[in-house]
């Protein structure tokens, strides 16, 4: 999908925050110089092409339970099986393979700290691998967004 200048502006303006008001797309259209329907059409197209993953809330999971970044060093030839076992555990919502001795990095969530610790113990036992537990101590920046460099990506 070719993004035009308006698509780019739309992403730049609303990737961090969109109006949470009545008729939000009308409001966005006023800022962009588009009709409400045009904003909706563009968002639909961007979503259909997976340029944006969704238009909606990003949930602060630390406010509704416990979560933790963890890593394991899976033997390279077993990495798929280990990843599969991790993914089938309750509360896993990210799992990335990374180029490192610690080659699987995942986030585990649970309703509370105790359940989280129990699940991690169980996971450790199931995998027969030590799980590196890296809870967040302090967040310095949790934007999860950054300025898109349109020159670089086009």
């Amino acid at each position: 999908m070719q993004l035009d200048a308006t698509d780019r502006r739309l992403i730049d303006l609303y990737q961090r925050r969109m109006p949470v008001t009545s008729r939000p797309f009308l409001r966005m259209g006023e800022e962009l110089g588009l009709s409400e329907q045009e904003v909706i059409n563009r968002l639909e197209a961007l979503q259909a092409h997976q340029i944006i993953s969704r238009v909606g809330p990003v949930f602060e999971h630390s406010r509704a339970g416990a979560s933790l970044l963890a890593a394991v060093a899976a033997p390279q030839h077993e990495i798929d099986q280990v990843a599969d076992r991790i993914n089938h555990f309750p509360g896993i919502n990210h799992n990335y393979a990374r180029e490192h001795t610690f080659n699987l990095w995942f986030v585990m969530t649970a309703p509370d700290e105790r359940t989280l610790a129990t699940r991690l113990d169980e996971l450790e036992e199931t995998l027969a691998l030590p799980v590196l537990r890296l809870p967040m101590i302090e967040a310095y920046h949790i934007d999860l967004a950054f300025n898109i460099d349109w020159e670089a990506v086009s």
């Binding site: 990737q15 961090r16 925050r17 968002l43 944006i52 238009v55 990003v58 602060e60 967004a145 898109i148």
Partner: peptide
Amino acid sequence: GVLRRVAAVPN
């Protein structure tokens, strides 16, 4: 702060 943000989340 239950919602971190409401946005058009880019991929």
